[in-house]
């Protein structure tokens, strides 16, 4: 396993934001981390990147192993080597993750200079090659531009180039296409998949869109309120989703064969960290909830090959809506 997160718990003060999250990614594999905003998917990414202290959180239990190393045991200095070098992050908003007063080419150079034993000339050559690979037209010219001179799609390509410049083994992409136009989103997603295959990367794709998951991921982990509620291979998740939340999320995406009224949302809202429901945290929004769901936390239990779901009703697989 390239990355394996075991029973990860994260706290902000006394509030528990992640209550035991486990997932793993192999090289050449795309893991989709799915859920609504507030489900804890970005927080999991922050924890892997070791960036929690920035927002006042801390890991209070569990472990994160990357390539055999326990990241929790690393010194801040050693962590910096991993972060951006071996594990790189692609963020949602390309405008705010680029420095507005530095030429984009130099920002990519910087990432390489920080993590690889290269000099400036070599860094620039690598940057240009990388930009070409990411299908950035006129790489030589774009190299000298500032972020505000680029379109949204080009900016996101630059951000990806920055992430790749340190030759990482693992890429964490946090809603990398949410801010982009649909046709551009499709191109960026395709690019990410190609890179995973070419460079044998592990990719954790964080998204709320089951459509994107279906198109890109090998395995899926569905998160709700700081817990994994279902995990499995993408085919199984879509063919026989076990958890009502997974079914609901799939039902939120319009399909061409839906009849009017088929698109149903999920009633209610994601509860806040301070007011987590007891038992199964999804029970207030779940149509199938039985009395047991109000008091007991359903464990993640096997529901097929590599397929597990945290629901007492897992025995009755539901139809994909």
């Amino acid at each position: 396993m390239l990355l394996s997160v075991e029973n990860l718990q994260v706290q902000f003060g006394r509030l528990q934001a992640l209550a035991g999250v486990s997932f793993s990614v192999n090289r050449g594999e795309v893991l989709g981390l799915v859920g609504e905003s507030g489900s804890g998917k970005s927080l999991s990414a922050m924890a892997v990147m070791g960036l929690l202290p920035l927002s006042g959180g801390r890991v209070s239990g569990g472990s994160i192993h990357f390539d055999g190393t326990d990241l929790g045991s690393l010194s801040p200095k050693a962590y910096r080597k991993i972060r951006g070098g071996k594990v790189a992050l692609v963020t949602q908003n390309p405008m705010t993750s680029l420095d507005p007063v530095v030429r984009v080419g130099q920002q990519i150079d910087q990432a390489a200079l920080l993590h690889l034993p290269v000099d400036r000339t070599e860094a620039k050559a690598r940057t240009l090659a990388l930009m070409d690979r990411l299908r950035i037209p006129n790489a030589e010219m774009v190299y000298t531009l500032y972020p505000h001179q680029l379109s949204g799609g080009l900016r996101q390509r630059i951000v990806i180039a920055m992430a790749l410049a340190g030759e990482p083994d693992l890429l964490i992409a946090d809603e990398p296409t949410t801010a982009l136009d649909v046709t551009v989103q499709a191109q960026i997603i395709q690019l990410l998949i190609e890179l995973v295959q070419e460079r044998d990367l592990g990719l954790v794709l964080i998204t709320h869109d089951m459509g994107v998951v279906a198109r890109t991921c090998d395995r899926v982990a569905v998160m709700y309120c700081g817990r994994i509620v279902e995990t499995g291979p993408v085919e199984a998740i879509f063919a026989s989703p076990r958890h009502p939340y997974t079914r609901a999320l799939i039902g939120c995406i319009p399909r061409h064969d839906m009849a009017p009224g088929d698109l149903v949302g999920i009633p209610g809202v994601v509860p806040s960290v301070a007011a987590m429901p007891s038992g199964c945290r999804f029970h207030p929004r779940c149509a199938q909830a039985v009395s047991r769901c109000f008091t007991e936390v359903p464990p993640l239990s096997a529901a097929g090959d590599n397929h597990a779901s945290a629901c007492f009703l897992t025995d009755q697989p539901g139809e994909a809506s």
Binding site: P271, S272, A274, A275
Partner: peptide, 8 residues
């Protein structure tokens, strides 16, 4: 919701 109410 209740968190935001409390901080409020």
């Amino acid at each position: 919701m209740s968190l935001s109410l409390k901080t409020q």
